[in-house]
Write a protein that binds this DNA or RNA. Structure first.
Lengths: 108, 108
DNA sequence: TTCTCATATTGACGATTCGCGATACGACGA
DNA sequence: TCGTCGTATCGCGAATCGTCAATATGAGAA
């Protein structure tokens, strides 16, 4: 069973486009396609994602900016956060991104 | 012959997402799907688009804001402008929008 | 408990955007 | 040539964004 005609609210779409209207955040999302490409990433964590510090180092942003950007991407439904111990791992929400692309085809 | 693997530059993508990260501009683009739904639209102009004044009235925006928003949508490649006499008609650039959706599928 | 580390939140400030009114431009009609 | 009308551009204040340093929170380690 799939999603029957993905529905995104106006506000959800707004948060998505706002999140993507920043090149740094778009690159974050791209790089998260390949978690192992982050220096420091351990093979056994690939499923759960990449931790904030590793993302920060690679993006060359401040720690707070990195955290904020990831929060925006999460609120837009583009990534998922998982807390494990003192680390928060972020990974792409592929299912929701696919749903979003379906919606965009209808909407535009 | 079609487009062989649509390519949008980073800057083009940026202008697209910025243009779409505003609900009013997104609604403009939606409403332009059906030019005849604009009060004042003449059947013989459907092909060329809708003039700024008609769009303005429907959106309830100021004239200058309407013009600016349409310029943004045009620079993003989402609409096409045609000047005829003292009017400027805007219509969706369906081919480019389709190309864009293809690109998004690859990019995200 | 207390210290440390990873992350989140807050506060600040320049840069950009939002939407407007005023004004300029360009194409008609008189 | 003068008005007039449709559109574009300029200049503005208010709001939001981009990014940071500082601080708060929360979970292990000692």
């Amino acid at each position: 069973m799939g999603y029957d005609h993905a529905v995104f609210s106006e506000e959800q779409l707004l948060s998505v486009f706002r999140a993507l209207s920043n090149p740094v955040r778009r690159q974050m999302l791209m790089w998260l396609k390949d978690p192992m490409s982050f220096p420091g990433q351990k093979a056994e964590d690939v499923e759960i994602g990449v931790c904030v510090t590793d993302i920060q180092r690679r993006m060359g942003l401040g720690q707070s900016t990195t955290s904020q950007y990831l929060t925006m991407l999460r609120q837009a439904g583009l990534v998922v956060a998982t807390r494990r111990g003192k680390w928060t791992y972020y990974r792409r929400d592929e299912a929701n991104i696919a749903r979003l692309l379906e919606t965009l085809r209808d909407v535009f």
